[in-house]
Nucleic acid binder design. Structure first.
Lengths: 266, 266
DNA sequence: GCATGTGAACAGATTCACAGCT
DNA sequence: AGCTGTGAATCTGTTCACATGC
């Protein structure tokens, strides 16, 4: 169903491009590094190198925030740290709940990067009664029956879903109903949420698949030749089936050399 | 200098846009779901809904792969699964090493999504001698002294870094020197790699920071809305509007645009 | 002189809308 | 009639190059 529609008044003055927002945390990290080493100022060139982007992009990004630099000199590190933190909303405290305390959930609970940036793990929630009360990263796991109360009691607006795929949508629905408006989803599922709720997803296997694509490409001539050979072979062997007899059901012939299908999940 | 990717020297007309590549795994997942339920064909509309994108984009994406659909009918599920798998390089087996077996590394080792898509965890490596020999996810952890040998013995070209930030660059250097050409980095550091090596990073705290930005903006918009209402109503109704009114979707005319999930995927 | 900040050119991705095939 | 495949239009993001101000 079409939900849709972004706000129209969007670009008043708070029109920071999404791509820029996604880089602000990167700059912030580089800046905190400099701050810790008591570096007072940086040029766009230096900071860009530390953040792994190019300097023109960095200057453009900063220009959306305002003119916080000094021509001929550079940027004041502490000042920029503050401005970016404020822009990202990190000057306030964000209570977060993590739902699904398996391996990944536990890893997230232990992840130091949260606490150090204004995020506070307010609660860990799991559906397994055996987990209830068990401390993970020093925080006792609570049963999911209490999810709504926990959200309300802690004023949580950001939820992290680290459940198995099947549980993700129901959990998401409950989080949203309870008042959560931002969700970070680690489950390999497309979540459906009402308008006004933001979802970001992190999918480990997707990242690897993208790498595999490039890796295959790199293998270059070899892989290319192999693929070409396989495709050429298609003219008189198995894949013809795939190419012509589609719609067929179950029995798909095995590929050219052994393991064609290969992609069914366990 | 940094990311030096050879331009689209690509092979023949193999110029698949990066944005499209990043979505192929998404389509693949939706398709495997359909395949498991023995659905023989899908329309671009249906598949797009399942993958959480809009149908024009999906058709455009598929057009880069070739003409694998049937006009008036749709796409053959099994055939598409095979084509996308092949394009992503998932019809071959990719041995992967995970370096840094802390909470996160263990979670990754246990993550089912790898094995099910052509990725095989060939080895777990950690710098802590106390970990050596201990099985995680059924695989004995090996000491990092042997990193080079492990890479070579297993023909590994993809490495996953899940170490603390400080160890990431040295580990990366050793992986690359040993022959790894694709790296998935979970450590919160910018890695420097030679040309020809791909790095993708997953940063949990960055994702949360992006959510925080939007969360903050939402709060601001509520205020804006209240202000606008006040302005329009001229002291008519109270700012009660600012209360939690979410998910809205009252009547509103047909939305001209699709159902974009509000935030761009990683 | 030197580095920021920014309009303008460029490149890439998304969406539209319809021609073309089944 | 229905759905794919794709040029054209649009939108978003990046890079260039230089005027601007310390």
């Amino acid at each position: 169903m079409a939900t849709g529609r972004t706000h129209r008044t969007a670009t008043r003055s708070r029109g920071i491009p999404e791509a820029t927002v996604a880089r602000l945390p990167l700059y912030l990290r580089a800046l905190t590094g400099l701050s810790e080493r008591s570096v007072p100022t940086v040029s766009s060139e230096e900071l860009a190198a530390a953040a792994g982007v190019n300097s023109a992009k960095l200057r453009k990004d900063f220009s959306y925030l305002g003119s916080y630099g000094t021509r001929g000199v550079g940027y004041d590190v502490e000042y920029l740290v503050y401005q970016i933190s404020r822009e990202l909303g990190l000057t306030q405290d964000w209570p977060v709940v993590i739902v699904g305390i398996g391996n990944l959930g536990a890893a997230l609970a232990n992840y130091g990067g949260f606490a150090s940036r204004g995020f506070r793990v307010a609660a860990l929630i799991d559906a397994d009664p055996a987990m209830a009360g068990k401390p993970v990263a020093g925080i006792p796991v609570q049963h999911s029956d209490d999810l709504e109360r926990i959200i309300a009691d802690n004023g949580v607006s950001i939820g992290v879903i680290a459940t198995p795929a099947g549980a993700a949508q129901p959990v998401c629905d409950r989080l949203v109903a309870a008042g959560v408006t931002s969700i970070l989803n680690f489950a390999p599922t497309v979540l459906t949420v009402p308008d006004g709720v933001d979802v970001r997803k992190v999918d480990l296997s997707i990242e690897l698949q993208i790498l595999a694509f490039h890796e295959q490409r790199k293998a270059g001539e070899e892989a290319d030749a192999a693929a070409a050979a396989a495709e050429a072979g298609a003219g008189d062997t198995a894949p013809v089936v795939a190419a012509k007899v589609r719609g067929g059901s179950g029995g798909r012939g095995k590929g050219p050399d052994g393991d064609v299908p290969a992609v069914m999940p366990a």
